[in-house]
Design a binder for these strands. Structure first.
Lengths: 201, 201
DNA sequence: GTCTATACACCGATAGAC
DNA sequence: GTCTATCGGTGTATAGAC
């Protein structure tokens, strides 16, 4: 019997092609709008005919699904990378986490629309692509719980605040970061409201 | 010379037909998704052939434009109707206004997506259709100013809070009103943060 | 003037040859 | 795995009947 090859060159090649397709779709999404591109656009960009894409993705929505999963994995990676460096003082810690999300969300409109708004008609993420986003939310809730914020309502108010300011950033000052200062002020109000301590206990 | 007729029956008929078309589009939007309907769908519902719609609207986006303007006019009407009955006490007044908007926004996902999110690819409202939404925002800002809230940042934090909770309502409990209680708590935090008085001064 | 009939260019998707 | 050919459906456009 033949043993498993060290590297599966075929699978590597397949994965690289899928990556090329997804990257091309991201470029188009940023350029023309999240969903304002066609399979023929993507195909041209990767040097294929449109139907050939179906050897790698079952549908246009399957490409969106890969984009969705990738975006949340990317944020999860940013988050885990910054985890150690976060302040321990509760108020500063919440603000730093919120700003991390805000910066990521404000940096790319198309990505934010795909990740956080249901703005592609007919598209719903698969459970596998959805998993990273669930982990991110759970990790945030756990961290807040460790700071004494156990009321689910307080957590959701915080999320609403951040999401609302990201929306405003994109709607009223796209590409800018004017709402970053407001976020600090708003998080301050929230911290007061939920009685979050300034110093580590 | 012929005088102006008392009623322009032709114009009335035209306006009624436009209304029929827009109403049919709303029904389809609520049923299948904001943009997940075709001109042929609308035409079938009003008993026309699809191309006949072009006698009344220049494009599908023109129908969206009429829907956009109508939705904001409708909210403005709700607002003006409730204006007299609003509490004079600052905190209660802000909460009542916020809840009015929240209820309107939470009641109809498709309408909210059209009014407050840019979720139809390629559609931007015309200045005429946009006007009512500008008036609503200005009226809210003026009313807040009369309560002593003059900092634009504080106003935007308030708007972000309301919008964020409406988003959450639609995303996590569509058709429900679970975030209504959170809105009250959140507005309380905000009122504390901006130093809003409880009683009329 | 309003609607019907017809057509166009383009879309996502599929079938089958190589 | 990629190609060519093609499908049904879409928004849009226009010619012409009434």
């Amino acid at each position: 019997m033949l043993g498993e090859p060290i590297r599966d060159r075929l699978a590597e090649r397949r994965e690289a092609t899928r990556r090329e397709i997804v990257d091309a779709a991201w470029e188009l999404a940023r350029d023309k709008g999240l969903a304002d591109w066609t399979l023929r656009d993507v195909a041209r960009r990767v040097g294929m005919q449109a139907p050939s894409l179906y050897s790698h993705f079952a549908s246009k929505n399957a490409i969106f699904d890969a984009m969705f999963g990738q975006a949340w994995l990317e944020y999860e990676s940013v988050e885990l990378q910054s985890w150690q460096g976060l302040p321990a003082a509760p108020r500063k810690r919440v603000l730093a986490t919120a700003m991390m999300f805000f910066d990521f969300a404000a940096a790319d409109l198309a990505r934010y629309q795909l990740m956080n708004q249901r703005s592609v008609p007919g598209f719903e993420p698969s459970p596998e692509s959805f998993a990273p986003s669930v982990r991110v939310v759970e990790r945030a809730a756990d961290d807040l719980a460790s700071l004494g914020i156990t009321d689910r309502g307080d957590v959701e108010i915080l999320f609403a605040l951040i999401g609302g300011l990201v929306d405003q950033q994109h709607a009223n000052d796209p590409g800018g970061h004017s709402r970053r200062a407001l976020l600090a002020r708003a998080i301050g109000m929230w911290s007061d409201g939920v009685g979050l301590a300034a110093e580590e206990s």
